[in-house]
């Protein structure tokens, strides 16, 4: 499965830059990112090409961060695909906690990162695959 870095940051100027500085110095590439804002602080979620290395570099700089697995799902970049994906999940009463995505310019594939809850024994990866989507492994994601 794909890995996501979650980083605690205060909500003030220059904080995201400080993270980007660390990644830049270590020659790490950002694939996707999202920010959850909670007033005085927020969580920054990053998908990078070498997640374990990025975590080590950030922790060494004193950043509070965690590495967790997320679903990286691809589908052709066409109208209606996200609707199909979310319908599949809602039919099984699976809740989406967080989602963000990007479009790969080369093969026109949309990539969506999902955090889910209320899975109730549903194998979400299998469910998605059976409904015409592809869940990317680490290697497949970083090979895009």
């Amino acid at each position: 499965m794909a890995k996501q870095l979650t980083i605690f940051l205060e909500n003030r100027p220059g904080r995201i830059k400080s993270i980007c500085d660390v990644l830049q110095v270590n020659n790490l590439n950002i694939w996707a990112f999202a920010i959850q804002d909670r007033g005085e602080f927020g969580l920054v979620k990053l998908v990078v090409d070498k997640p374990a290395q990025a975590q080590v570099a950030l922790v060494e700089c004193g950043v509070a961060c965690a590495l967790k697995e997320v679903l990286a799902i691809t589908a052709p970049d066409k109208p209606g695909n996200l609707d199909r994906l979310t319908s599949t999940l809602s039919q099984k009463n699976v809740n989406i906690k967080d989602a963000y995505g990007f479009v790969s310019t080369g093969d026109k594939q949309g990539v969506c990162f999902l955090e889910v809850q209320n899975v109730n024994g549903v194998d979400v990866a299998k469910l998605i695959s059976e409904n015409g989507f592809r869940v990317l492994s680490d290697e497949e994601l970083y090979a895009l």
Binding site: F8, E10, F41
Partner: peptide, 8 residues
Amino acid sequence: VKLVEPKT
């Protein structure tokens, strides 16, 4: 209460 980053 304000949560702040490490070493702030």
